[in-house]
Design a protein around this nucleic acid. Structure first.
Lengths: 129, 129
DNA sequence: TTAATAACAGTAATCATTGCTAATATTGTG
DNA sequence: CACAATATTAGCAATGATTACTGTTATTAA
């Protein structure tokens, strides 16, 4: 698709995203990757995150928070955000909600191509507190 | 709930939100309300939009765009965003999608309180082009 | 080996949003 | 009505997330 050249920095970012389920922000990725590349710049992190999303190697998650989050798991799944601790977790229990596209298409004169959805509530860890 | 005092500025913002279906950003509200109050400041617009959302007089819509949008229609409904023109429109045809909360709650150990969802695709106006 | 060019670190700039402050408007009470 | 308490305002500075720029370095293909 594009003329991408290999870079150690991008590879490290991709590996980190694949290894974690914490759905990090760009800043969290920056902090983590600096353990390997102490001089990496935040701009490089942002540029590579965008490249990875464009290449389909990562997903951008917008949960209304001030900053975006990224997910190295590109399989189709939904997310849950805890309103107490603001952590984002994966919901692998739902197969697909694509049937709601048909509901939305009813009496609608445009073309529904898809949807964005996430759930919120209290996560298991925060429930007891 | 709060100790709110009346203000012409807030009333004008509220009226505008109620009168339109264009789901304006803070900047669009600013441009509109400046027709009535040429000296109103953008900070006043932001503060009043936040107040109106807190009072339940408006809804904040986050569609992954760079800026938030606001809706004076507080009845329960979903939104559609055109990927071509980026306009947001209302979907009054769907009653409710609350059944997806139960789907998400399956085999999930936290508490699902609700969901955020919007649809995307091509709007009627952009379809022909 | 070299030439072309993508990627880099460092830094400045942008954009949306919030915070601050002194002046003004609203509201309840005497 | 007058007045005191205080919410609201305009104007502007500050913040935070993200992107743009620039001169140098790394990757790649011939």
């Amino acid at each position: 698709m594009a003329n991408l050249k290999y870079s150690k920095q991008r590879e490290t970012i991709k590996e980190y995203l694949r290894s974690t389920t914490e759905h990090p922000t760009a800043d969290m990725v920056y902090d983590k990757v600096r353990e390997t590349f102490p001089n990496i710049s935040l701009g490089t992190v942002y540029r590579n995150l965008n490249l990875l999303v464009n290449e389909g190697e990562a997903i951008r998650i917008s949960c209304g928070d001030s900053s975006e989050r990224f997910d190295g798991n590109t399989s189709n799944h939904y997310h849950f955000m805890c309103t107490k601790c603001h952590r984002v977790s994966d919901l692998f229990n739902i197969e697909s909600l694509d049937h709601i596209n048909a509901l939305a298409a009813n009496n609608f004169n445009g073309v529904i191509e898809g949807h964005v959805a996430y759930f919120y509530g209290i996560c298991e860890e925060c429930k007891g507190k």
